[in-house]
Computed example of a mutant assay.
Amino acid sequence: MRVDKYLKNSRLIKRRTMAKKACEQGRVIINEKIAKPGDEVKPGDIIEIKLGTGSTKVEVLSIKDNVAKNQSEELYKHLKGF
Rank of each mutant, 00 (worst) to 15 (best):
D39H: 14
I30A: 05
A19Q: 02
A22R: 01
K33L: 10
Q71M: 09
I34Y: 11
K33V: 15
M18I: 13
I63M: 07
V58F: 03
G44C: 06
T56W: 10
D39M: 13
Q71T: 02
D45T: 06
I47N: 00
G81T: 05
I46R: 04
I63C: 09
S55C: 06
K50M: 08
C23K: 00
I63Q: 01
R11Y: 10
I30S: 02
A19D: 01
I30T: 01
I47L: 11
K36Q: 10
T53P: 09
N70V: 08
K20F: 03
D65K: 11
G52R: 11
I49Q: 03
G54I: 14
M1S: 14
V67C: 13
V58L: 05
K21N: 13
K77H: 12
T53R: 15
V28R: 03
A35I: 01
I46G: 01
C23A: 07
G26Y: 03
A35H: 02
K57D: 07
F82W: 11
G38A: 05
Q71V: 00
M1L: 12
E24F: 00
D4C: 06
G44F: 04
K77P: 10
K8P: 03
P37R: 12
L61T: 07
V28A: 14
D39W: 12
N66V: 06
D65C: 05
I29K: 11
C23L: 04
L75C: 07
T53W: 09
S72I: 06
P43D: 13
L79S: 08
L79M: 14
I13F: 10
L79N: 10
I47Q: 01
K20D: 08
Q25N: 12
G26S: 11
I47F: 04
K42N: 13
I29E: 13
E59Q: 15
L51C: 01
G26V: 10
A35N: 02
H78S: 11
I47C: 05
R15P: 05
I49W: 05
R2P: 02
A19H: 04
I34N: 12
V58H: 01
S62M: 15
A22T: 02
K36L: 08
K80G: 04
G38F: 00
K42P: 02
V41G: 04
